[in-house]
Amino acid sequence: MKHDIQRYTAGERSNHWAVAILFVLAGLSGLALFHPALFWLSHLFGGGPWTRILHPFIGIAMFLFFIWLVMRFMSHNMIHKRDVQWLKQAGDVMANREGNMPEVGRYNGGQKLLFWVLLVCMLLLLVTGIVIWREYFSHLFGIELIRLSVLLHALAALVLIVSIIVHIYAGIWVKGSVGAMLTGWVSKGWARKHHSLWYKEVEKGENKH
C-alpha cells in the first residue's frame, strides 16, 4: 500500500487501539460471566473473583477512551441523504459491485451507522453497568431496575460485540483499511475507490486528515 494520504494521526490511531484493546478485555471478561461455556475465560484475568473485580473498571476505561474517540470523529459521522442511499445499496457493496454507489465522504453509511450503534451501546453499557456493579452501586437501586439492567447490559454487549465483529471483518475484507489504522496512511487509489468525496476534499487541500 502506497503512503499517499494520511488518514489517521498518531493520536487517533493510539486512541482507536486503546479502545480496541480495552474492548477485547472487557468483552472476554464479560463473556466469562455471561455463559458457563465461556467461564474458563475468567482464568485469563486471574480467576472468577478477579474477573468480577476487573470487568467494570476495564469497562469504564473503555467508555472514557471511546468517548474521546467520539469527540474526534463525531463531526465526520453525521448521517446525510447519500449515506441513507448508501445503506439501501449496501448489498451491492457486499457483492463487490460498487459501480452505482453514491459518493462517499470520509465515512460511508455503514461506518456511520456503526459509529452511532456503538455510541448507544456504550452509553447503555455504562448506565446499566453501574446499576449492576454490586460492590459499590447496586444498593442504591431497586431490584426491578437491577433485573432490567442485567438484561439490557447483556443485550447491549451482544449488539456491540456483533457490530465489532462486522467492523473487524470489514477491515480485513476491504484491503488497505487495517493498514490505514495501523500506519495512518492510505493510497490515492484507496481513497478514490472507497471515499471519493473525501479524496476530492483532500486533493483540494481543504481537509488534510
Binding site: 500500500m1 502506497k2 455471561f34 455463559h35 461455556a37 465461556l38 457486499m94 457483492a95 463487490n96 447483556a154 451482544l158 460485540i161 456483533v162 465483529i165 462486522v166 471483518y169 480485513i172 475484507w173 476491504v174 484491503k175 488497505g176 493510497s187 487509489g189 484507496w190 475507490k193 472507497h194
Partner: peptide
C-alpha cells in the same frame, strides 16, 4: 445460547463471504 449463536454466526458469515465474494481490493494498487 442465542447470544453466542449470533456472535458465532456473524463471524462465520464473514468467513464465508470472504471465501465466496473475495477481497475488496483497489485494482491499481
Amino acid at each position: 445460547p442465542l447470544g453466542l449463536l449470533a456472535m458465532g454466526a456473524t463471524a462465520l458469515i464473514g468467513f464465508f463471504h470472504y471465501l465466496r465474494v473475495g477481497r475488496n481490493v483497489v485494482e491499481e494498487d
